[in-house]
Design a protein around this nucleic acid. Sequence first.
DNA 1: GTGCTTGCAAACGTTTTGCAGACTC
DNA 2: GAGTCTGCAAAACGTTTGCAAGCAC
Lengths: 141, 141
Amino acid sequence: MEALLDLMRAAGDRITTSRRLLAGALLDRQGPITAEELCSLVQAQAPDISISTIYRNLEELARLEIVEHSHLGHGSAVYQLTSSAQAHLVCDGCGKTLVAPKELFEDLARQAAARYGFTVDPRHFAIQGYCQDCQTSGAPS
Amino acid sequence: MEALLDLMRAAGDRITTSRRLLAGALLDRQGPITAEELCSLVQAQAPDISISTIYRNLEELARLEIVEHSHLGHGSAVYQLTSSAQAHLVCDGCGKTLVAPKELFEDLARQAAARYGFTVDPRHFAIQGYCQDCQTSGAPS
DNA sequence: GTGCTTGCAAACGTTTTGCAGACTC
DNA sequence: GAGTCTGCAAAACGTTTGCAAGCAC
């Protein structure tokens, strides 16, 4: 937590209540979370903090590469700490997400590099498909 | 083209100018394209067709599983023909996209199935990272 | 002629922005 | 005290919807 705030201090940013609470919420979650959820968590402790402050702070954290945002499935963007960012398997049927450990991408990363000189960022994406439960219902056969 | 329209006819849908032009635009592109771009292409031939018609028709085409929409990167959704849908490697640096053939995902698909019972849809996603040209500039080392 | 499709305009949910006041340093 | 950060309200953006007129069948 202090490490995170120190990164902001080092960038010349001021440490305010909203930033402290936002950092806490991100650290607690350790996974992707929407701006709106973050706002609720922060407002639980400081009701006056507005959603635009959340967005502005997330933007600043993204600029410092402390958080990154991505679009899992259809809907709001989600944010997560760069340090804990992981790829996810997102079910097209029910929207459930599973964490996808790096090992799953090793082969893909190797091939993309060899064939295209493309460096895969294994923290950064949503693999779509169907989870065990939704397999039967919606999956294209 | 006629094959595509026949699928709509078979579903009881009527073949209108907007649908014909939209189908043409999707077939021409053979790749992901936003609703807005599609609208421009269609309007180039029939200026009165409105964006809401494009969205409604895309929705209907998605319902028939003729097109699918996904979110590559940050911004508008993109649409593509299911038949030509492919995964893409999207560069976080310059936004360029490369087509990623299915073979790249075979290992990933196998592991996701074995470990999580998750069926990967290899047409459906954007692998983020950095292309050859952007490797040096923005890539996290 | 029936009823699906369309254009328009207005609503929607998410994200961004302008501004004056409040706060950190 | 200087300049950043904030709340509020309004705008922007992509997308969806209600309605009455228009068109395919």
